[in-house]
Computed example of a mutant assay.
Amino acid sequence: MIQRKLADNLNWTLLHVLIAICEEGSISAAADRLNITQSAVSQNLKKLEEQLENQLVIRNTKPLELTPIGRYCLQVAQTIFTEITSIEAMKGSNLHLLEGNIKLLVVSRLHNPKYNNFLVYFKKKYPNITLDLTVKSSMDILNDLKQKNPAIGICLAKHTSDTLNQKILFNQRYYLYCGYHHPLFSVKELSISNILEENFIAFNSEAIGDVLSPIALFKEAHDFTGHVSAYTNNLDELVRLIYTGYGIGALPDKFVAATHLASKLRRLPPKDGIADIPVYIFWHKHRNLSAIESKFIEEIIDFDISF
């Protein structure tokens, strides 16, 4: 009876506000996304906490952190949102007739809740379309697409191509991290001055002019003097090297949140992170798209999974 009372009285709009706060990382950013005032966002959050009789968000952290019940509430809210999108997916009586195979080339370790929501939406709307996914590096994906291979690519890119169409899907925010076996892991208070001389583990693509060059530019602008103790082109190996104390490194925040080593990695200053790296969808300008390829591109762009 108590559970039914909560379900009957809970304002579902407040759950949407919670999703926005968590995905954007701050009340101000959530207000911009929802096109309402920061005061309105704060009031809605307070109302939700009052209805649930629990604190959901730990204030004065950047980005905002959730309490244990807050994390559970977010999971429930995201499930509700996904089911609501399925209602939209079922519009159009003939959409289920579209069928076939879409070849997708995707860079590894993309973590974005809205991207996941889109895949749920697309599957429910087009149940007879099969996705054939191959994981490759961003460079290999772009090279394949330039050869007019019948595929769509989702990856990182530094420079636009004259032969490819592209549309930004979302940004991955990168932060600096150290690992459990690094001396900084147990230091109570840290500022950016404490890390300027630390050695780095770097991606091969952090070179100036490459896809992750904003990371190198940040280090250069802030006079980091530590040397690179290891290079890798693999995100999992970079996490391993950070964890084992080879140096500090830059990682996308949502990937870290999803990894089993999240509790063994420590986010370092600056609190706001160091770079936004965009993820794009690409397809060749002069290759005829199939109907289902066109539909996939149209849907993922219209879904607006960008932050």
Rank of each mutant, 00 (worst) to 15 (best):
K46N: 07
T134M: 06
N117S: 10
Y121I: 07
N35F: 11
P63H: 04
S108R: 15
L142E: 03
P113E: 04
K103S: 15
I129V: 01
M90Y: 13
F118P: 04
V120I: 12
N143D: 11
T67W: 00
I129H: 00
T85G: 00
I80E: 05
N116M: 12
K136F: 10
S108Y: 11
T134Y: 02
V41H: 01
V57F: 01
V120H: 14
K124T: 07
Q43R: 13
Q75T: 05
A40I: 06
M139R: 15
I58N: 03
M90R: 13
L95S: 09
T67F: 06
L95T: 07
E99G: 08
N44Q: 11
G70E: 04
A89Y: 01
N116G: 14
S86G: 07
L66N: 00
T79W: 11
L48Y: 02
I36R: 01
P63G: 02
L110S: 06
L34W: 11
N94K: 14
V106E: 05
G70W: 00
D140I: 06
K46C: 06
L105A: 03
F122I: 02
M139N: 13
L45Y: 05
I87Q: 07
M90V: 10
N94Y: 11
L133I: 12
F118Q: 00
S86K: 13
R33W: 08
P127N: 01
P68M: 10
L64V: 07
Q75L: 09
F81Q: 14
N54T: 02
K103I: 11
L74G: 00
Q78K: 13
G100W: 04
T79M: 11
H111M: 12
L131N: 00
H111D: 14
N60F: 09
S138H: 00
F122G: 03
L97I: 05
A77K: 02
Y72R: 15
N143F: 09
L131I: 11
